[in-house]
Amino acid sequence: MSTGENRTEVFRSPITDRAAWNAESIGGKAGVTYALDAAELSAIARLLERTRHRATYDLAKSDFETPELQRCFASICHEIMHGTGVVLVSGVTPEAFEPADFERIFWGFGLRFGTPAVQSAAHNRIGHVRNEKENPRNRGYMSDRELGFHSDAFEVIGLMCVQNAPSGGLTHIVSSLAVHNELLKHAPHVLDALYEGYPYATAERTVSSRPVTDYSIPVFSRVGQTVSSMCVDTYMRMAADKLGVTFPPDLDEGLQRFFDTCARKDLLLEFLLDPGEILLLNNFTTVHSRTKFEDSDTQRRHLLRLWLKVADGRPVVPALLARGTDYEDLCQRG
């Protein structure tokens, strides 16, 4: 893959579709919530009983097809792919369902929107986001520290809360397309470097024969009139270190402007995921972060995570898909 395939012309007009939202227009947590009704919850309960004799990973998309959930799945899919890119599903509570069933419910929802990707060398397709004593690669999702704004490796990200922390662990989401609009308005000169992008050096690549990607991943890119994003600044800076070169000053300024804009309260969607709630994000139109949290002896923050590959998804440059493909290939070899 050549860098030229991924470097596109800067989109110089304001992005006006619904994915370019701000804190007011999206309406807070309530504005992104799809509340499951009684019929939908009853259908989920029946699906659980019908599939209980089978392992979670053995279940297919067809196992979660039922007329009562058609409207739900269609509405959520449209919102993720063609709307704001953010949906929070509520109604699956510890009072209504056993927390032991959350993983199966989450898997069923994920299969309706994409194919779950491998997330680790153990070939896990459901990740566990929690503070682990054993964290040899210092992975952020296995820590209790604050995680800055970033993009994950696949098109749709799913998180389901099993248990929140006694304190901290707030979720932050920003429309990266709204950030693009603000940069176009206030600092248009930084967009060229952000569209150029930079190679990545991921945690998985550090133990491979190719620790740095041989292609650049742009922060912003376009296919026709469709703008998309991907940004993990730590991987870009690690790549420069691995290559023994100075990080480009214009990209450094662009990233600082990007993250300063992400932190603006007028753009930021902030909330706490409650047990049983499922959050689905379009990774190509949003970036997300998490505040530091503290566990206690009796309460430990625990989220489930899905990375979903979407067939015929958003039109994007090759690098945005290659990052996920590379990640999964490295995990499967590990």
Rank of each mutant, 00 (worst) to 15 (best):
M1W: 05
S2E: 15
T3I: 15
G4I: 13
S13E: 12
P14R: 07
I15H: 00
R18Y: 05
A19P: 00
W21L: 00
N22V: 00
A23S: 09
I26V: 11
G28I: 02
T33M: 00
D37F: 03
A39E: 08
A39F: 11
E40Q: 09
E49K: 14
E49Y: 14
T51R: 13
R52T: 09
H53G: 15
T56C: 10
T56R: 13
A60R: 15
A60P: 10
K61W: 11
T66I: 05
P67N: 09
R71K: 09
R71M: 07
C72Y: 14
S75D: 12
C77V: 10
C77W: 10
C77P: 06
H78E: 10
H78D: 11
G83W: 04
L88N: 01
L88Q: 02
V89I: 10
V92R: 05
E95I: 12
E95M: 13
A96G: 14
A100Y: 08
F102G: 05
E103Y: 10
E103I: 11
I105P: 02
W107V: 01
W107G: 00
F109I: 04
G114R: 02
G114L: 03
T115C: 03
A117E: 04
A121K: 14
H128L: 11
V129P: 07
N131M: 12
E132C: 10
E132N: 13
N135M: 15
P136N: 08
R137M: 08
Y141Q: 07
R145W: 13
E146R: 06
F149H: 05
H150I: 06
S151N: 07
S151L: 03
D152E: 08
A153T: 05
A153I: 01
E155V: 03
G158E: 09
M160I: 15
M160P: 13
G169Y: 04
T171L: 08
S176I: 09
S176P: 12
A178P: 11
H180V: 03
N181V: 00
N181T: 00
L183G: 04
L184N: 09
A187W: 14
A187M: 14
A187V: 14
L191E: 06
Y195M: 01
Y195K: 01
E196I: 02
Y198R: 08
Y200G: 00
T202F: 01
T206Q: 15
S209T: 13
S216F: 09
I217K: 00
F220V: 10
S221V: 04
S221E: 06
G224P: 10
Q225K: 14
V227M: 02
S228D: 02
S228K: 01
S229I: 01
V232T: 15
D233W: 04
A239S: 04
D241F: 13
G244W: 08
G244F: 06
P249F: 13
P249L: 14
L251C: 08
D252W: 08
A263C: 12
K265S: 08
L268E: 05
L268G: 01
L269M: 01
F271G: 01
L272V: 09
D274R: 15
P275V: 05
P275D: 04
L279I: 11
N282C: 09
N282R: 05
R290V: 11
F293G: 02
F293H: 05
E294C: 09
S296G: 13
D297A: 15
L303C: 06
D312T: 12
P318S: 03
L321W: 07
G324M: 04
G324Q: 05
D326Y: 10
D329C: 11
L330G: 04
